[in-house]
Amino acid sequence: MRDLSKVRSQHLDILKEAGNIGAGHAAAALSQMLNKTIEMKVPGVKVIPFNEIGEYTGGDETIVAAVFLRIEGEAPGNMFFILPVKEANRLAQRLTGDLSIDFMGDSLNEMGISALNEAGNILAGSYLSALADFTHLNMQPTPPAIAVDMITAILSFGLIEMSEAGDHAIVINTEINEKGTGPAVSFKGHFFLLPDPPSLDKILNAFGVHQNE
C-alpha cells in the first residue's frame, strides 16, 4: 500500500491525465445533452490531509447538489459530480423544461431529482467508461444517489475507504464550464474521483508506472 503523503509529483501528473480523459468525455456528453459548448479546465490533483478538506473545497458549509456513485470492478473508488445548488436547479430546469424546480425548496421535486440523477449518471458513466477504456481496467458505476447539503458533509462520505488506510485524501478534481456565456448564466460543475487506496496503484500501473518508481 502506498503512503499517500509520499505520492510523487510524476504520479500526480498521471492522475491528472486520468482526470483529463474522463472529464473530457463527460464534457462532450453534457455538451450533447444541453446542445451547448462545454469547456473543461486542466484537472487538479491534490493530496490533502483530512483536516484541510474544508479549506480545499472553499468553505465547509457551501451548499451543493451532489450525485454520488460508487465505482465497482478492478479499481474501486468513489465518484462525485458536484454542482452549486443554483446551477443544479438550472441544469434540472433546462433538462425538464420545468422552471419551478428548486432543490432548496421545501417540497421535493421528483422530476428534478430524476433529471439530475440521470445527468449525473450519464456524465459519470462517460467519465468512467473513458477511463476504463484507456486503462483496460474494469470499472462500473453503481446507480447514482443524490444529496443536497454542505460540501464537507457530502465529500466526507466518499473518504471513508481512504480514511481506513491513512490520513490523506487523493482528490482528482476537474471543473467543467459552459463556454462564453458570461458568469450570470455559466454552468460550473466539478468531478471528484476518489480512488480506494489499492486502486491507486492499479491506475498508475495501467499508465505504465510500476511499484516503487
Binding site: 478538506i53 465547509d60 454542505m150 465529500l155 466526507s156 462520505f157
Partner: peptide
C-alpha cells in the same frame, strides 16, 4: 477539522463544520 480533536476554555468557543457520517 475532520479527524482532529481540540480543547477550548471559556471565553473560547469550539466548532466543527460539515459533519456527515462523521
Amino acid at each position: 477539522g475532520m479527524a482532529e480533536l481540540k480543547v477550548a476554555k471559556s471565553p473560547q468557543i469550539i466548532r466543527t463544520s460539515g459533519l456527515g457520517s462523521c
